[in-house]
Design a protein around this nucleic acid. Structure first.
Lengths: 155, 155
DNA sequence: CATGAATGGTTTCATTTGTAACTATTTTGC
DNA sequence: GCAAAATAGTTACAAATGAAACCATTCATG
């Protein structure tokens, strides 16, 4: 406590939220550009595919409540995927407002291609860290995420 | 290794880059909205102020090379800050292309208000974690950042 | 069983952001 | 000392994003 004014100057480059944001955006952009050039997918389209690939038949609003995407983003991603023939929509018999989403064969195809790719990205990240650090990071993220948005179930 | 196809389905909600991105965006949005409502600053305007507050007289391109912002973003942020009377620009005597940036009195004023606020945010984050976890996180971020963009000096 | 509220999803419009081209000035190489 | 390349910064335009209004349908209530 060398500063009695309370106005220590802030070192932006050391400031955790800033570093966090920069790093996260760097990683996201790399991933996004890869998915774009290799598969013509936006990050959000990929996220929608990832959710449906994991559990088929969910509706758009299921995706909204399961992820951090908002409904407009999901709607647009879904529209794009359908145009690309990678997703199909089946109106629910019981409720004409909602529809269930499924990967088409083509969709499943690239899903199967991307999953190992995503796994490889994760491995690349993990490789930078020791085993313990990797676990620590996951734990820390869980804590921070709970704190940052206590309301939203993580999954 | 229960899956011999290689196509383990991916759990998006557990996928580190995804979690990273969601968390970082949540935090950034909270901060941004605070700075916006309390001071009428965008996140980028604040970042420019933070850099200049720390070291006065830098040029826009110095900021670009020091931070992860690109030159258009910096240019726009600087323009905005000048319009708000929080930053001033002095063309360099030796080189008419560049100009040196300084906080005005008004700028210094809100800088001095924001710094403790930012500090408080950091404390709030730190409070979620144990002392060790906090250090671990910083170390891990450093490692990951080096890996993610080996080129850019951290500061 | 009709009316108002709620839900699922899309569309519209304004704002933000990114890319590329551009102006002005300075530097480099001959 | 002059043309070509480089640098600082801005502008113009396209694409991405977010907020709010908007349909259509279903649910809840009297």
């Amino acid at each position: 406590m060398a500063d009695t004014t309370g106005n220590t100057t802030l070192r932006l480059g050391d400031f955790l939220p800033y570093r966090f944001s920069v790093l996260s955006n760097t990683i996201s952009k790399q991933i996004a550009s890869r998915y774009q050039t290799d598969f013509g997918l936006t990050l959000w389209q990929w996220r929608v595919m990832a959710v449906i690939g994991e559990r088929t038949g969910l509706s758009a609003s299921d995706i909204v409540s399961l992820t951090a995407m908002d409904k407009v983003a999901v709607s647009r991603a879904v529209t794009g995927l359908i145009e690309q023939g990678r997703l199909e929509r089946v109106t629910a018999a019981a409720d004409a407002r909602r529809s269930y989403l499924h990967l088409t064969a083509a969709g499943q195809d690239i899903y199967d291609k991307i999953v190992p790719l995503a796994q490889a990205e994760l491995d690349r990240i993990a490789a930078t860290l020791s085993e313990t650090e990797f676990e620590q990071l996951n734990q820390i993220l869980t804590k921070l995420a709970e704190q940052a948005s206590p309301d939203r179930p993580l999954w």
